[in-house]
Design a protein around this nucleic acid. Structure first.
Length: 400
RNA sequence: GGAAGGGUAGCCGAGUGGUCAAAGGCAGCAGACUGUAAAUCUGCCGACAUUGAGUCUACGUAAGUUCGAAUCUUACCCCUUCCA
């Protein structure tokens, strides 16, 4: 693999915000213009839509999850299929997550109630299935058949090699918020160790067609974040992924993101794990984040909410819940200015009907629209950086 | 004509003397969702009242029994099934 097959090149820096930048992320499966949004295809599909829709609405890169795919259909099946690209039909750039987040979400309960602000909406009686975590790795009970599954950096790396995504992520422990600083420190140091083991394994067993991102841990503590960043800066990772507990409130999350972004080697690409609110994206980009991933655009779509550019909606909101009764007889598209497949062919009334009738096409059509809208947001943000006009773009999308 | 079983909030359906404005489900109304065990979860859901306290109207209709009735009695109306 020649050196320029894989690279991250900063092609323009914002004058309005010194850290915001335009980049080109080159991978064997194509070039990603950054800032970019990465859609979650956790179980090797973006829920509810075909890969053609994903592509046609302007998606540059998608993400799948090691933990889910190792349970089902297993790495063996995907390796035999020729890797995730062949398996899914997606021929563009791809990232896989390591499974480290599952140590958190399967071990400590709901995501949203813990890492981010708000209360959890997960059903409370879910049984936690993390059995053990030590220096070697983590042991889970499979949520599919109850069998006992071991995850180590080496297992995660081998799985990610089998999956064959362009960018892969170090195995880490996503530290919850409600633990002591001592635990957070130990956990972060464990993730450092696991990062080294991940790197070593990939260098020894990989074929050179993949690059590794270091995960930045350290919770809400500046000194721990700095220690984690120093480690990542010094150890030859291709890029970075900011993860772990980002505090309890959105405000806290942004403070941590700003803090970490100041510490990282600015020559490398930075991914912000799991964050995808429009305000949070603008905040991240001003601070130099290059890529984001989040389940929110596709999840809320399945639940009936369509994202709409603030200036297009003209009612002071940035999304509409198509479950709401006011759309029963609304024969206009979701957004008047949207060229997506859904808005070209279908009306709010029709989609409202599909949702009410529990026809899964409703969620599908909104997912298509939301994918387009997120990609359009990122396109306009890149335009804003290029033209030193990011604040105008921000306003148009109803962000502060 | 005879026999039996029923009629409960928008719908279905539990409840058989007080703890009943009445379980549960559906429908309706709204909200949440941030490295996906999520096409899921939460709240409201007779009327009036800004919420609460509260007031009123309600379990086919009418009249009773009772301190108290969706629940017991009588009559009537309607529905379903079975027998002729």
């Amino acid at each position: 693999m020649s050196n320029d097959t894989f690279s991250f090149e900063i092609i323009e820096s914002s004058k309005q915000y010194s850290n915001a930048r335009l980049g080109l992320l080159r991978t064997p499966h194509g070039v990603i213009e950054t800032p970019a949004f990465i859609f979650c295809a956790t179980k090797a599909n973006i829920k509810g839509v075909t890969i053609d829709h994903v592509k046609n609405e302007g998606t540059q890169i998608i993400l799948s999850n090691t933990y889910h795919l190792m349970l089902q259909p297993t790495g063996k099946v995907i390796r035999e299929a020729g890797g995730l690209h062949a398996f899914t039909g997606w021929d563009g750039p791809m990232l896989t997550d390591s499974g480290g987040f599952q140590i958190f979400s399967l071990g400590h309960g709901s995501v949203s109630s813990e890492i981010k602000s708000s209360r959890g909406s997960c059903s409370p009686d879910k049984k936690l299935s993390l059995l053990k975590i030590d220096d070697d790795g983590a042991v889970f009970r499979s949520y599919i058949d109850g069998s006992v599954i071991k995850m180590t950096p080496e297992i995660s790396m081998q799985m990610q090699i089998d999956l064959g995504a362009d960018m892969i992520v170090s195995f880490d422990e996503c530290t919850p918020y409600h633990v002591s600083k001592e635990y957070t420190a130990l956990s972060m140091r464990k993730s450092k160790e696991w990062g080294l083991r991940s790197l070593r394994y990939l260098n020894e067993r990989g074929d050179g067609s993949q690059r590794l991102l270091a995960v930045i841990q350290g919770g809400v503590y500046e000194d721990l974040r700095l220690e984690s960043v120093d480690f990542a800066n010094e150890n030859g990772f291709f890029g970075f992924a900011v993860g772990g507990s980002l505090g309890q409130t959105t405000f806290e999350m942004r403070e941590i993101v700003s803090m970490v972004m100041e510490m990282l080697d600015r020559r490398k690409n930075v991914h912000l794990l799991g964050i995808g609110g429009i305000d949070d994206i603008f905040h991240g980009i001003r601070n130099g984040v290059d890529t984001f991933d989040c389940v929110s655009p596709t999840r809320i779509a399945r639940h009936g909410t369509a994202l709409v550019k603030y200036d297009d909606l003209k009612n002071g909101k940035r999304n509409i819940n198509l479950n709401n009764g006011i759309f029963r007889g609304d024969h206009s598209p979701i957004s008047p200015n949207c060229p997506c497949y859904t808005c070209q062919k279908f009306t709010r009334a029709y989609i409202h009907h599909l949702l009410k009738a529990k026809e899964c096409l409703g969620g599908t059509l909104i997912t298509i629209h939301n994918i387009h809208t997120m990609n359009r947001l990122m396109t306009e943000i890149r335009g804003g950086i290029k033209n030193d006009d990011l604040n105008r773009v921000c306003k148009e999308w109803g962000s502060e």
